[in-house]
Write a protein that binds this DNA or RNA. Structure first.
Lengths: 346, 346
DNA sequence: TCGCTTTATGGAACCGATTCCATGAAACTC
DNA sequence: GAGTTTCATGGAATCGGTTCCATAAAGCGA
């Protein structure tokens, strides 16, 4: 009545379990007649070997771990789709953890991955483990894992790991340049979380593009958000209430952009007539609905796919030297970056 | 140099591995002094027992499986977030499979879950296994699983499983009623996949609401899509090209609604002035951006949370009678349902 | 002080697979 | 036809835990 095991199959086929194992794995010598006999019994009983027993005796698991900070963020949902597809295609199983952007869950997830003996790990750290002490715990867990790790989207301290990243700096640079070329001179940024390197890189890209054209950036034009909608909404409201404000904005991530646009539209401002705009990452379906919002985006599903590829390559050859893959962003200009010269300007 | 085992801990602590096991599990008798000694060694080496070995000897795993049809769909991304949170909170691990809406991957995923000995499964079937033969394979795998299964969002044939669903019929009924109350008489529907029961239920809710008011529904006003954006976009374009068309539409799901709106806006039509509109599920951030789109929606993350709750309850008590939880939808009217009486109507 | 229960502990079997090794039959070499 | 290699197979050890069981010391009531 209980689960059928390799021993049952062996008995039913009248052979030893070593032979069944050989048939299952296509290893060693098995005569054609025995193989056929065993395979029939296996098929008749839709037998599948227990992964936990198999992994234990093989001293290697068939699972890949994935840790992401926010499952409901469309960016990570797409990454997951990409990763999941490749993992399934290789008859591996995906272990999934969501960390809600907290360090505690991040470390806890690493423990989970260790307990579960993952064969490899795709990891987007929830926070920037800049300070040495916190990084220590993570470094220790990753070391204990004894499995390849590919970091995704964000680097992990100074650790020498394979990684898949975006060209945050140059995407921000190009987007800013586009706003400048369109005629804007005072430009603001809806910055993401500056505690994260990706946030800082995008801000730097923005700043350098401005500096390269000799344009000043006022401190109050840098909206220091947190990669979420509500914070940037609030900051944008405050900014719009000020006496004067930039004529264009670069929004450094998708959720922040939504908050920004919400505040802008509530104020009755139009894009691009009243406010030039470019975002990092395409804003969902907005452009299908009559908007013409310019954006810099990347092949997100592709990033997930590449991450697994790197991981599998490292699993195949643990001595492979670490690779950093930078996914290029493409700037798509649809009109929202344009500048309108006011008839009577101050 | 290899992974540290319970045997190593036992040696270091100068006790037997049975004792270490007792300390780990808080079972049996262990003296306070021994316990302290063992715990120190465990802590000093950040030892964590191997999940595969533990599961094997316990004949029960610590993993929960989750199968969804489309990871990039925001609805399922939120479900995943809800599920993942509860699963983590119970020190269980989540096994994730995405089926890309195909039956092959669906069945393959069930095999994976079986191999992996999941303790319980949360399952959204990719297709409606109406016909007996196909349902057979699924039924067999679920039977072999010997673990509780909670179906999510869609029922599975006539199988008596715990489930978490939406009130598709009444949500569609209420939405349609709202359009009628607003003054519309010829109303169309962007139907979802009618191969799926949720698609049929929503269509039926729509039809019955119309019938209850004695309103006819023309065949060509039922756009038979597939719960995706591109199909409904195409169908809507064709519909709008016709001589006459409905004055309002109910869109039975989020992705279909996007396709519909895209076609409507491209045609230069406004909502609600030229076309009344209500959708099933809230359309992302659109309403934050100046739109006032009415919708019927449900607590999606909550559905995920409830699904795990049901599952854990069934795991605790396998004799618990099956429960069907219907998550209520809430109708939110923001104005897009309104009807404008044309000055010169035909 | 003698039994009886309670507390503590380690040895050994077991979970379900893989894999090493020994054994034997068949096939090939010279 | 004796010696080697190749093919085929099953028994036994192993992976890292849990758990049953035997054993022994300690506590305790009569």
């Amino acid at each position: 009545m209980s689960r059928i095991t390799i021993q049952d199959i062996a008995l039913l086929a009248g052979v030893g379990k070593a032979t069944v194992s050989r048939v299952l794995n296509g290893s060693g010598y098995v005569s054609e007649t025995t193989r056929a006999k065993v395979e029939k019994v296996i098929r008749d009983h839709t037998y599948a070997p227990s992964a936990m027993a198999r992994n234990l005796s093989k001293r290697a698991s068939d699972t890949i771990g994935m840790i992401i900070p926010e499952a409901a963020n469309p960016f990570f949902a797409e990454i997951l789709k990409g990763v999941s597809g490749v993992v399934d295609g290789h008859n591996l199983t995906l272990l999934f953890c969501n960390t809600d952007n907290t360090m505690e869950k991040d470390v806890k997830s690493l423990h989970t991955m260790y307990r579960q003996h993952v064969r490899g790990l795709i990891y987007t750290p929830a926070v920037d483990y800049g300070s040495a002490e916190k990084l220590g715990a993570v470094r220790e867990m990753l070391g204990k894992l004894r499995a390849p790790v590919v970091v995704l989207d964000r680097p992990l301290g100074d650790m020498d790991l394979d990684g898949v990243f975006s060209d945050n700096f140059s995407a921000a640079y190009a987007a800013t340049q586009a706003l400048i070329n369109a005629g804007h001179a005072r430009i603001g940024i809806v910055a993401g979380d500056l505690e994260l390197s990706i946030g800082r890189e995008r801000l730097n890209g923005f700043l350098e593009a401005m500096a390269a054209r000799g344009l000043d950036v006022r401190t109050e034009d840098i909206l220091k958000g947190r990669f979420d909608t509500s914070t940037s909404y609030r900051l944008t409201q405050q900014m719009l209430a000020a006496k004067s404000c930039p004529t264009a904005f670069f929004a450094a991530n998708n959720l922040g952009a939504y908050g920004f646009l919400k505040a802008v539209f509530e104020k009755g401002l139009r894009i691009p007539e009243d406010m030039g705009f470019i975002s990092f990452d395409r804003l969902g379906n907005l452009n299908d609905l009559g908007f013409r919002l310019s954006y810099a985006d990347r092949d997100v599903i592709g990033m997930g796919v590449e991450a697994v590829r790197l991981l599998l390559a490292k699993i195949d050859d643990p001595d492979k030297k670490t690779e950093h893959m930078i996914c290029p962003s493409k700037l798509t200009l649809l009109g929202s970056e344009r500048a309108y010269v006011p008839a009577n300007s101050a």
